[in-house]
Amino acid sequence: MRRSEKSPRPPSQSLRSNRQLRLFMKDGDSSKAKAGERCAAVLEAIHYVIKGEKILKSAGLGIDVIPVPREISSDCGMALEFSCQDRDRVEHLLADGDITVVGIYALRKGHYTRL
C-alpha cells in the first residue's frame, strides 16, 4: 500500500508522553544522560529527518519525530526524539547514513539542554 492511500496517522503517543516528561521530570542536573531521559536530534532539513527516522526505526530504535522545540531553535522544522541511552547508536547510525547532526539536546527539568 502506498502512503497516499492511507489517511494521516493518529496522534503520536510519544508526543503526549513528551509533554508528560516536561511536567513530571524533576531531576536532570547530572551532565551524563540518565535512563529514561529523552533526547532530540536536530538535523538540517526535513529530508534528513525522514531519512533518519527510517534508518533508526529499521535499526529497531524506539524513536519519534517531533516539532523542533521552540527553545532549541526558531526554526519551523522537525527533530528526531529518542531515548538518551541510545545516543551513541543514534549518532553512529545517522553518520553512516551521511546525515549531518546540527545538535543533540536532552530534556532536563522540562528544558532542552544541548549535549
Binding site: 494521516p8 503520536s12 516539532p67 523542533v68 519551523c76
Partner: peptide, 19 residues
C-alpha cells in the same frame, strides 16, 4: 506543505516527497 509546519500532516507530506 512539507517541511514547514511541525504538525502531522506536514510530516506526512514530507514523507510522500521523500518516498
Amino acid at each position: 506543505s512539507p517541511g514547514r509546519s511541525g504538525h502531522r500532516l506536514a510530516l506526512e507530506a514530507g514523507r510522500l516527497i521523500f518516498e
